[in-house]
Amino acid sequence: MAEVLVLVDHVDGTVRKTTTEMLTAARRLGEPSAVFIGTGFDAARDTLARFGAVKAYRIESAEVTDHLVAPAAEALAQLVERTSPVAVLLPSSLDGKEIAGRLAIKTSSGVLTDAVDVQPTDGGVQVTKSVFAGDFEAVCASTHGSPVVTVKPNSIAAEEAPAELADEVVEVTVSDAARTARIVERSAKQQTGRPALSEAAIVVSGGRGTGGDFGPVETFADTLGAAVGASRAAVDAGWYPHSSQVGQTGVSVSPQLYVAAGISGAIQHRAGMQTSKTIVAVNKDPEAPIFEMVDFGVVGDLFQVLSQAADTISGS
């Protein structure tokens, strides 16, 4: 069976959920081969095998990891050349999309970003993506080369399918040109103890309506084991870090449940959460556009509503 390359998304060997989702999608197309760049492979090995990776290509050279996306694209291009995969799957993150863009040019392949579904067609791949702030759903295909697909986190349900995994250390040659942008400093994001925004099953977001007090939003989120998000208005006011911004210019989320508290529902915000399975809003303005798209809405003051809801849930 033909190979499908999956670029492993991990932090020092801790495999992120996106990777297990991509491996699940890859199994529909062929035999998943994980491409692991960086250190910590031993920690990742079990998870990769459990989700069906048959092979793992390990690329450990610092040449690749100390630089921005260009060397990773070169490494993948060399693997594409060698394995002629059915497709290359990457996470739809900042880096993932950029690696995809460069890889597409290098291998003369079509690139499809932000796939929410991936399906085989005879001899190829079709992906579904949502466009124009989620108002439309498009089915797209690549007509050239080995399709390069970035997959949106939380869109495909990960399923285990244990496999025997054989790993191989791959030496890649990195050109001088690819080494021109250098990461000179890196500081890890502070851990909040909450799930990561892009992979969380539940997201509770606060907006301008919080007036700067995210206390009730955080308490409610913790009651549900949720990640905390924010609207741009809340981020611009300095109430919450930019990495928590949901929307067109922030993170795009697609959780099982999205709760918007004190958020009006501007199109740029909707662009980042409209594909959530269930949507709930709390807003004191009954005319707020967010109510047009909710499964359940409460017109009221978020301070009262969220704390009563949290108390009711923890009490029961």
């Binding site: 909710v294 499964d295 359940f296 809405g297 017109v299 009221g300 969220l306 704390s307 009563q308 949290a310």
Partner: peptide, 12 residues
């Protein structure tokens, strides 16, 4: 649009 309730003390 799903169900919308107005908080009159029991919204939460």
């Amino acid at each position: 649009q799903g169900e919308i309730v107005t908080d009159e003390g029991q919204g939460g």
